[in-house]
């Protein structure tokens, strides 16, 4: 796939640019990795200086950046300032939890959004459309933290049906236990995204339905169902897919709030912790990995156009 390869190569300067930006931002945030030690009365200035030197933070920023870049390119991402373990190990052990949560949310959200969006578009202005609209608007009006805490209160504290947080029980092995833990955070993430997706799909389909070639298809005497799903949905899927893929990329790094509320052991939680401690190596790796993820998914989205939209393919 040479087109894909070319795009990947184009991504290299892009990533370089991102890395400079992000490095500057991360280091511009007030307080460094050592600020946390200031709270402890037993740590003296000499200790701080000693730690600063040992972490290489006493060198000028450009030197630190080049060192970081050299390491990053050669696969040596350094050690976490927090616990002294390799950054790669810290990211890798968090990744499965995030993929699990994002995967589940994606499936849930798609299952909810596609039928709801199609239905609303087809029955535009009627009761079904109104109900879908009311529900989606309610959902996009809810802050994730707030919605998450509400679900937690209802299903974990009052009803006792589901665990309030975490990813697994200590001795509760098995898929049932995992699903129970997954239920609330995945629902929160899914609903927030499904609501937005429903509205996009509804609009995109409404748009397509009104277009001439659909009218033409109807005119040719094609069955209404065929028109609706074969032609309208297929054409509406193009912009919809863009949104879904982008959201998926954003979810991987952006479930910060949901992971925090549900103590989910994923990358979002790692970011919050690393930002609070200004763990530069972890922050840089997290932001770079997220960027690579978005770039790859963008590529996938672009390639899918060719496949999905016959007009672009032509």
């Amino acid at each position: 796939m040479p087109a894909a390869l070319r795009r990947l190569l184009q991504a290299v300067p892009l990533l370089l640019l991102i890395s400079v930006l992000v490095f500057a931002l991360v280091h511009a945030a007030p307080g460094g990795p050592l600020a946390i030690y200031l709270e402890n009365p037993n740590v003296r200035p000499a200790d701080i200086e000693r730690l600063r030197r040992s972490l290489g933070l006493d060198q000028p920023l450009p030197v630190q950046y080049l060192k970081w870049l050299g390491g990053f390119v050669t696969g040596d991402w350094g050690f976490s300032f927090t616990d002294g373990r390799p950054v790669t190990a810290r990211l890798l052990e968090r990744l499965p939890a995030t993929l699990e949560l994002v995967g589940a949310s994606l499936v849930l959200a798609l299952v909810a959004a596609v039928p709801a969006g199609v239905l609303a578009a087809v029955r535009r202005g009627r009761a079904t459309d109104r109900i879908v609209s009311a529900v989606t608007i309610a959902a996009i009006s809810l802050p994730a933290f707030w919605f998450g805490l509400l679900l937690q209160l209802v299903f974990a504290v009052w009803l006792g049906w589901l665990p309030s947080s975490g990813r697994s029980s200590l001795f509760g092995s098995g898929i049932g236990d995992r699903l129970a833990h997954l239920a609330l955070p995945a629902t929160v993430l899914a609903i927030l995204h499904a609501a937005a997706w429903t509205r996009y799909l509804r609009s995109a389909m409404g748009n397509v339905i009104a277009q001439r070639f659909i009218l033409a298809a109807r005119g040719r005497g094609l069955h209404e169902r065929t028109v609706r799903y074969r032609h309208a949905l297929r054409n509406a899927l193009l912009p919809f897919l863009t949104v879904v893929l982008l959201d998926a990329a954003i979810m991987i790094s952006g479930a910060v709030v949901t992971e925090s509320v549900f103590a989910w052991p994923g990358l979002g939680g790692l970011f919050t912790e690393a930002l609070a401690r200004r763990d530069y190596t972890v922050l840089m790796a997290f932001l770079m990995i997220s960027s690579v993820g978005v770039i790859v998914l963008n590529l996938v989205a672009d390639l899918s156009y060719r496949w999905l939209d016959p007009r672009v393919r032509a």
Partner: peptide, 20 residues
Amino acid sequence: IQFKFIPNTTTRVNQLASGE
């Protein structure tokens, strides 16, 4: 003894209230 990591205060208190 199991130490569960729950950074969010409200969540931690909810766990205590739910008996988890």
